[in-house]
Simulated scan of single mutants.
Amino acid sequence: MSTTVSTTMSTSSSQIHPSSDVQTSAIGQGTRVWQYVVILSQAQIGADCNICSHCLIENDVIVGDRVTIKSGVQLWDGLRIADDVFIGPNVTFSNDRFPRSKQYPESFPQTVVKQGASIGANATILPGISIGQSAMIGAGSVVTKDVPDFALVVGNPARVVRFLNEA
């Protein structure tokens, strides 16, 4: 599955804290990168994003425009984040279904977070999951399967408790 993510490739007006290690030049205008962030060389970051301290973004990651990534989040290879997404503090994404030390899959499953979705603090998102447009993941939830558009999911495993208004 692929998703369209718009990104503006410019670093002319982005703000990058000097203690961060930003290896990519694909950062949109108005994006702010705070202390102790590492962004690898092939990552693509959109415009007007806010990437808070102590985050890591790997190479095969695309982040759309106006995305907020709070402190303590790691974005691993295979992650696609659309525009206007909120990722709360210490959200955990994983990208390997059967992790073993020094054994890597041929490719990583693609995890997609669609436009306007919000993920609460300390939620865990398993690999290959799709989080629907404007969906909301409750704090501490463990997402083990796809989340529909406009769904509010909570718990372990996360379950739909209701649907949010589309407006």
Rank of each mutant, 00 (worst) to 15 (best):
T24P: 07
G64Q: 00
I39W: 03
Q44Y: 02
L79V: 08
A47G: 10
K70W: 12
A43S: 03
V38M: 10
R32N: 04
S41D: 12
G72R: 01
D48N: 15
V33E: 12
S41Q: 11
V73G: 01
I51L: 06
A47S: 15
E58L: 04
E58R: 02
T31Q: 10
L56K: 13
V61H: 02
D60M: 00
I27Q: 05
D48F: 10
V38A: 11
E58K: 03
C52K: 15
G64N: 08
R66T: 14
S71H: 13
G30M: 11
L56N: 13
V33Q: 10
A43K: 05
R66W: 06
Q42S: 12
G46K: 01
S25E: 14
Q44P: 07
L40T: 06
C52Q: 15
F86V: 07
V63R: 08
V85A: 04
G28Y: 07
G46H: 03
D84M: 10
I51M: 01
D83T: 02
C49S: 08
T68R: 09
Q74H: 14
G28N: 06
C55V: 11
V61G: 00
C55L: 10
S71W: 05
D60I: 01
K70R: 15
S71P: 11
A47P: 09
I27Y: 01
G46A: 05
D65Q: 11
L56D: 15
I27V: 13
Q35R: 09
R80M: 05
V67K: 06
S41I: 03
C52W: 14
L79E: 04
R32F: 05
I51D: 01
C52Y: 14
R66A: 10
E58A: 01
